[in-house]
Amino acid sequence: MNMLSLKNVGKHFGGLSVLEDVSFEVPAGSIYGLIGPNGAGKTTVFNLITGLIPPSSGSIALEGRDLVGLAPHRITRLGVARTFQNIRIFPHMSLLENVMVGMHRHLAYGPAALFFNTRACRDGEKKAKERAFELLSWLRLERKADLLADSLSYGEQRKLEFARALATEPRLLLLDEPVAGMNPSEKAELMEEIRAIRDRGYGVFLIEHDMRFVMGLCQHIAVLNFGRIIAEGKPEAIRSNPDVIEAYLGRDDDAETQP
């Protein structure tokens, strides 16, 4: 069963067509990669899936359930969480609070319980705190739990974003360029952490243009260029696909040009 499926999805802003006829399926329990040169429309795909902008045509479904037209918070509640290319943590809140924001919906105590600080409320808060701590420890951030988020390094902020996304209890995690701006050793570490997240049963769908990172991590890859999917398949097949090589390296002018 496929986790997420996009069928003939198109998006245009006025006369500018950003995505055209994009179709692919993200299988459950795996790491799926969407790659492509800058400006290919990758982040737009994420914005469409998470409901931040509506598609102009086509359908998007999570486990058979149509997502088009739902508000972003509803889509998150159905089990899709994401991180952002340009990190969007809550800088003036502690790490623990950042993660607990992700648990908002799972903390179901009513206004009366809140006002009178009943046992249900206290227990809920305590459990949420423990869970937030656990999620931080998955990413080895638990020792910094009480620091303010903006005191973290760039790489740590990305990890905090992962932990916060996991706190929404998603089934599918969308990662928008998770290793942008990281050095090789940080990249290797993050690769391990993403694998560990997959092994815990989450589906991972990531956007990246670091080819080596994607090839080493993903089981399936789709390649987007100028708003169209130009190749889809296993890493080995993508690596040797002439269209992909052309999109990334350009055409060899000395070679025979196509009519």
Partner: peptide, 16 residues
């Protein structure tokens, strides 16, 4: 607090 800091991120944390 989250809404004050980053509305879009708060929305995508499943918050109304």
């Amino acid at each position: 607090e989250a809404i004050k800091e980053d509305e879009v991120a708060a929305r995508l944390m499943g918050m109304d």
